[in-house]
Simulated scan of single mutants.
Amino acid sequence: MTRDAVRTAVHRFISRLLEGRDDFDDNTPLVQLGLDKEDIEELIFHLEDQLGLTAFTAEEDRMLKTATTVDDLSRFLIEIGRY
């Protein structure tokens, strides 16, 4: 799994959540996009399933607390994909 593939999956799913809006980049804060904790949790679970990844609950909890940008989500998925 490449960084570009993960990035594309993250952008595609966020765009779907935002009903087709794609006026964001990797550095866009998630709260600026209107995403709350539940949205971010849904993103993480969906993307793990889509990419065939599994994270420990503690890792997901850490991500929910620290994810502030679109890029944070991509980096998290790449990190758990290394296991």
Rank of each mutant, 00 (worst) to 15 (best):
I80D: 06
R12V: 04
A9Y: 08
E38A: 09
E38P: 00
T57G: 11
G34H: 08
F24K: 04
R16E: 14
R21A: 09
D23A: 03
L43A: 02
D72R: 01
E59C: 11
F13C: 04
N27S: 04
R75H: 12
D71T: 07
D4E: 15
L73V: 12
R62S: 13
S74G: 09
L17H: 07
R62Y: 11
F56P: 09
L53V: 10
L43G: 00
A9Q: 05
T68R: 10
Y83P: 03
T54G: 04
R62V: 09
E41W: 13
V10P: 03
T54K: 09
G20P: 12
K65N: 07
D39G: 01
I44V: 10
T28P: 00
R3W: 03
V6L: 03
K65L: 09
V70R: 00
I80K: 10
K37T: 13
D23G: 06
I80R: 07
K65S: 10
L30E: 02
R21K: 14
L18S: 02
I14C: 05
F45D: 07
R3A: 11
L64G: 03
V10M: 07
I44M: 05
L18D: 08
E19H: 13
R82A: 15
K37M: 05
I44W: 00
A55E: 07
P29G: 03
R75C: 04
E59T: 11
K65M: 06
F24P: 03
G34R: 08
F24Y: 11
E60A: 10
K65R: 15
I80T: 05
A9M: 08
L47Q: 06
E41H: 13
D71K: 09
R62A: 14
L30Q: 05
G81E: 10
D39Y: 08
T66R: 14
I14H: 00
L18F: 12
I78N: 04
D22W: 06
T8L: 08
E60D: 08
D71Y: 07
E59H: 04
K65T: 06
D26K: 06
F76D: 06
R16V: 10
L43I: 04
L17T: 06
E19Y: 10
L47P: 02
F24G: 05
L64E: 08
K37S: 15
D22I: 00
T8P: 01
T57P: 11
V10K: 04
T68S: 14
L77N: 02
T68V: 15
I80G: 00
E48D: 05
